[in-house]
Simulated scan of single mutants.
Amino acid sequence: MAKKKHTHSTGTPATTLLDREAVPYTVHSYTHDPAAPSYGLEAAEALGVEPAVVFKTLLVATGEPGAGALAVGIVPVHRSLDLKAMAAALGLKKVEMADPAAAERRTGYVRGGISPLAQRHRSRTVLDASALDAGTIYVSGGHRGLELALDPADLQRLTEAHVEHIAGP
């Protein structure tokens, strides 16, 4: 996969990180439809790829104090996040989906455009094991309508993600 510079006038924190780390990636832009019921499925359809290789970034509330209060789960867009599996991966009894406003504050990105890369504050991250079955996966580039294609091993390394089966049905 050839490295491609971000095509917009300014890069996002995610593309800046990938450039700085010399990680091969490609940028894929599409026109986001505000009426789309699912940001991730919209991205897969717009890019013409299987939903199994497009991953969404979800934040969970851990119930822990301070910096550990939120954690990141990265799962395919056509699946849900299994909260019990996510809690177990974090060594916790329970987690719940984070408040969207808290997720935006924590990551510096807007809902529907939260990238797992270069978030404002680093959080513990768990990547669904299915990502490693694909040669290339797509993740948000930092805003709605922008996806980045990269090797899942690079995503795992850059986010320091723990790999577990966390995707539900």
Rank of each mutant, 00 (worst) to 15 (best):
residue 119 Q to G: 13
residue 21 E to F: 00
residue 21 E to Q: 15
residue 132 L to F: 06
residue 3 K to E: 11
residue 2 A to S: 11
residue 58 L to S: 09
residue 13 P to T: 06
residue 128 D to K: 08
residue 62 T to C: 08
residue 156 Q to N: 03
residue 49 V to Y: 08
residue 75 V to W: 04
residue 35 A to I: 00
residue 140 S to P: 00
residue 136 T to M: 08
residue 81 L to E: 07
residue 80 S to M: 03
residue 87 A to M: 07
residue 112 G to N: 08
residue 56 K to E: 05
residue 152 P to R: 05
residue 28 H to C: 06
residue 140 S to L: 05
residue 108 G to W: 07
residue 26 T to N: 10
residue 37 P to H: 09
residue 101 A to L: 13
residue 19 D to L: 11
residue 106 R to H: 10
residue 81 L to I: 09
residue 126 V to R: 03
residue 97 M to R: 12
residue 79 R to D: 01
residue 152 P to H: 04
residue 142 G to C: 10
residue 49 V to M: 08
residue 70 L to N: 05
residue 4 K to D: 00
residue 22 A to K: 15
residue 137 I to P: 02
residue 111 R to F: 10
residue 11 G to D: 14
residue 2 A to L: 13
residue 63 G to H: 10
residue 10 T to H: 14
residue 128 D to G: 06
residue 134 A to I: 00
residue 102 A to Q: 14
residue 40 G to A: 10
residue 29 S to L: 15
residue 18 L to I: 11
residue 74 I to P: 00
residue 97 M to V: 10
residue 60 V to N: 02
residue 53 V to L: 14
residue 7 T to P: 14
residue 58 L to N: 12
residue 67 A to Y: 00
residue 129 A to E: 15
residue 24 P to G: 07
residue 132 L to P: 01
residue 69 A to K: 15
residue 141 G to H: 04
residue 106 R to T: 12
residue 156 Q to M: 09
residue 157 R to N: 05
residue 122 R to Q: 13
residue 67 A to E: 15
residue 78 H to P: 00
residue 45 E to A: 15
residue 95 V to T: 07
residue 51 P to T: 07
residue 159 T to P: 05
residue 150 L to E: 08
residue 131 A to K: 05
residue 67 A to R: 13
residue 58 L to V: 15
residue 22 A to L: 07
residue 14 A to F: 04
residue 112 G to Y: 02
residue 50 E to W: 00
residue 167 A to G: 04
residue 6 H to N: 14
residue 152 P to A: 04
residue 160 E to W: 00
residue 42 E to M: 12
residue 38 S to R: 12
residue 146 L to V: 04
residue 7 T to M: 02
residue 128 D to M: 09
residue 20 R to H: 14
residue 36 A to R: 06
residue 83 L to W: 03
residue 150 L to P: 03
residue 163 V to L: 09
residue 55 F to N: 05
residue 152 P to I: 04
residue 25 Y to K: 12
residue 149 A to C: 08
residue 90 L to W: 01
residue 162 H to G: 04
residue 169 P to V: 03
residue 76 P to C: 08
